[in-house]
């Protein structure tokens, strides 16, 4: 599980000796929920910042292009992409344990359950008006 961090060459941390801040301990390392602490380099942060800025410009620009019913999906798609970049890199989820990844997905999943199960009522309450 720990080599998944080191094999990622494109995003190598600035100094290999700083890759892990903590002293490893046996009972924790054998925990499948454990993953080594990874420092994301400022270069990556800067790249993500750039992507987010491009995304922001794109959202604002696309809103002025008439796409009919597709304006909302496009806006949401851009927003989701931006959010994924923030979650993966700024919030380090890419370098986190499966447990954290599962936690994030659980949140999204439960929110979707709230939406879908409520929409079940609203959509079928007035067929055709949606």
């Amino acid at each position: 599980m720990s080599d998944q961090v080191t094999t990622n060459n494109s995003l190598k941390p600035i100094g290999a000796e700083q890759e892990n801040l903590d002293m490893h301990d046996a009972p924790n390392v054998m925990n499948p929920e454990h993953v080594a602490h990874h420092i994301v380099s400022p270069v990556v942060y800067l790249m993500i910042f750039g992507i987010l800025m491009v995304g922001t410009a794109l959202t604002a620009g696309m809103a002025y292009v008439p796409l009919g019913p597709f304006n909302a999906p496009v806006a949401l798609a851009i927003a989701c992409t931006k959010a994924v970049f923030v979650v993966l890199f700024f919030m380090h989820v890419k370098y986190s344990s499966k447990l954290v990844k599962l936690t994030v997905s659980a949140g999204v999943f439960t929110f979707l359950v709230l939406c879908m199960m409520s929409l079940l009522d609203y959509v079928s309450r007035a067929w055709g008006r949606w």
Binding site: M117, L120, D121, Y122, S124, R125
Partner: peptide, 10 residues
Amino acid sequence: GVSNYSALVF
């Protein structure tokens, strides 16, 4: 006053 269809599913 929820829709009958969703009531069925729930």
